[in-house]
Design a binder for these strands. Sequence first.
DNA 1: GACGGGTTCCATG
DNA 2: CTCAACAATGGAACCCGTCC
Length: 366
Amino acid sequence: MTGSLVPARSRLIAHIDMNAFFASVEQTLHPEWKNEPIVVCVFSGRSPSAGVVSSATYDARLLGVRAGMPIVQAQSLCPQAHFLPVQHEKYAEISEQIFTRLYALANVVEMASIDEAYADVSTKSRSLDDAAQKLRLFQLEIKKDFGLGCSIGLSCNKLVAKIASDFQKPNGFTLVVRENIQSFLDPLPVSKLMGVGPQTESVLREMNIHSIADLRVQSLSDLIKRFGQARGQWLFASSRGIDESPLQPEREQKQHSRMWTLVHDASSWEEIVHVVRTHADDLWNETAGKGNFFTQIGVSGITSQQGTFSKSKSFTVPLVVSEQFVGEIESLFQLFFENPLLRWRRIGIRVSGFASPPKQKRLGDF
DNA sequence: GACGGGTTCCATG
DNA sequence: CTCAACAATGGAACCCGTCC
């Protein structure tokens, strides 16, 4: 019998973070460059070196190369590096192989992104030590079998496990038991909390809040006043290492989009009509074309001045005709050119509100 | 008020 | 004289109109 007086056993949650994932995968694909810096890039196509860095090996990082940095800048910091284009499909395949192995240690696994996963190892380990030992073994096996390093954090919730995996990199293993959570978090900068980005950090800085300890002494009402109900409560709990959020093993995709950089900035519809139709067709084939019908569509764009703009539209019934979809996308894009002075640099298409296929008979049934 | 639609902003990698 | 992705996704604030 389970008595209600017995507290639920606390969870054991691991966060596994692949180190310099894309660049490391490329290194395994090019063994001849084993000890040479590699920078994985998203080339925009505007000019041979236009685009940004997606991932870089640690030796390139030591020279200052960072994700999001213009490729030309990375080239000047680390001219000896190999600059390779991203191969998303390959990384996804390897990611899948690696994280599938977690099921040997965990009953629930959440792939948080292509290079990160959470694993609930509570039920498949006899003790904390047992869990830690199995995870270290996992880390060694990934290195042996894939030639890839990862850092692991182990604690009792996702929030702390994630910060722990980041604590020692690369190839780190950080265990934070319940009693140590507060002393572990307190000295860290607030930016270590997932969800605190540059904007939130600067607002907190104005409030003279730098460390998680600084955040923890704030009252709940002050935080809600400053950040709103949801974020205020979240910041309050996070500063205490409180996070009851469950792992989400099968997150279904809620939207599908595509954004691309125009080879030349555009200020008229005629300049983009062709490429828009191509991408709209592709997006249709990836969604509705495979039976995933949707009721919402949207377009977005970024101007040469980095200004953003978006337009969207909802339908009461899913779109079933690709020509109608493309037509609707086109009319949304027309709105971009009402101001002829704006020059569009990047544009994108989004579909969402996925629904089950409509019950009507197909034309071919008649 | 609740709810839905739409837009923008922020965050992550 | 110059750069800034996306084979991107998701959450939330906020504004506004409608309905009850």
